[in-house]
């Protein structure tokens, strides 16, 4: 495992379900939300690794586990060659500077009563990296890199005095001020306006190169993921159903769920109107996930075996790094269904 920058093996996060008192009296077992249920992947240095999937599939929980913001129920997390799964908070501290996170909603992440300069420079003081004028200098430099110019004007402003897109740039400045080498970006552009999204994406790409960053990029938008990610994992109900390079997964999607997700992405051009209907059904309850393949109830190809036996994540021949978890895959005569015809 050591050669990868980040490696995650059989990671699990089961949240106990809050039961009411009466329920608790009569049930002998505690119930759990299996938010992340046996996930393995790695991220190499300098990569943008995407996690995609519908709401509740476990993307954010996976990100928080890697950042050690949650205590995993099981599995192992290696960061830069070191097993950090059960490191104490004190032992984590020096690593915290190296791993940062930005969330979807910049408003929730910024203190309305703190100036932008303070918000961005705060971490420098806390981690005893720089103080006073030295700290201010670094903040101004960072604001400039974020395109918040002239930086000394933004330094003095409060969050409510700037636009949403600018606020997200402040959040990015704050995350990068300690020069981390790993950034979890959890739906970083989901709240932004269409035109601002393009700008933020472009900025994220440039920052990656400038600061030699590695990203875990969480998104439910496969069009955005295609634009920024190098590799991608598709999650469903706490598990990875398909993983590979963006090229592999997008041009040869093998899991029926990946195929459905890709087909469902609205294309901003009426030339590409969808002709095939989308499979029916919605994500089942994660407390009692379906037996066998968790996708079977929604899958057009499901057979008896899919209902009883859980498929394994298997390598795709001739496509190194591409893995899929589906019983149909590898079976005689099984061919990936062509994406819908273009008209």
């Amino acid at each position: 495992m050591a050669e990868h920058f980040i490696a995650v093996e059989n990671l699990k996060m089961w949240f106990p379900v809050q039961q009411d008192f009466i329920e608790g009296l009569f049930s002998h077992q505690r119930e759990f939300v299996r938010a992340v249920d046996g996930v393995s992947f790695h991220i190499d240095r300098g990569e943008v690794f995407g996690l995609a999937g519908e709401s509740g599939s476990g993307k954010t929980t996976t990100g928080r586990l890697i950042l050690r913001l949650l205590e995993p129920t099981g599995g192992r997390i290696d960061f830069d060659g070191r097993d950090i799964t059960h490191l104490s908070e004190a032992a984590m501290r020096p690593l915290r500077r190296r791993m940062q996170v930005i969330f979807q909603d910049p408003n929730a992440s910024l203190n309305p009563r703190m100036t932008i300069g303070k918000a961005v420079g705060h971490a420098l003081e806390i981690h005893n990296v720089a103080h006073g004028d030295k700290a201010k200098e670094r903040v101004l430099e960072m604001l400039t890199r974020m395109g918040l110019t002239p930086p000394d004007r933004y330094y003095r402003l409060y969050p409510h005095q700037i636009s949403g897109g600018q606020r997200q740039r402040v959040v990015m400045a704050r995350a990068l001020i300690l020069r981390p080498d790993f950034l979890v970006a959890d739906e970083p552009i989901a709240m932004a306006d269409v035109s601002v999204r393009a700008m933020l994406l472009d900025l994220l790409r440039r920052l990656k190169d400038d600061f030699h960053l590695t990203y875990l990029f969480i998104t439910h938008d496969l069009a955005t993921a295609k634009y920024i990610c190098d590799r991608i994992a598709v999650m469903y109900l706490g598990q990875i159903v398909e993983i590979g390079s963006v090229d592999q997964v997008y041009s040869n999607p093998l899991h029926p769920y990946t195929q459905a997700l890709l087909a469902a992405v609205p294309v901003p051009d009426p030339k590409f109107r969808r002709t095939a209907p989308i499979p029916k059904g919605e994500i089942p309850n994660p407390i009692h996930p379906p037996s066998g393949c968790r996708f079977h109830a929604r899958c057009a190809y499901a057979r008896e075996r899919c209902r009883t036996e859980q498929p394994l994540l298997l390598p795709v021949e001739g496509e190194p790094g591409h893995f899929v978890s589906c019983h149909m895959f590898g079976e005689n005569g099984w061919k990936p269904v062509a994406q819908e015809v273009q008209i």
């Binding site: 897109g165 994406l201 295609k226 634009y227």
Partner: peptide, 23 residues
């Protein structure tokens, strides 16, 4: 034109066009 250029299109491999400024 600028709005359409700034939306990623999953069917194509085009660079996004970035619209400067804000409304």
């Amino acid at each position: 034109d600028a709005l359409l250029g700034s939306v990623p299109n999953i069917k194509l491999d085009e660079e996004l066009k970035i619209m400067g400024g804000q409304p």
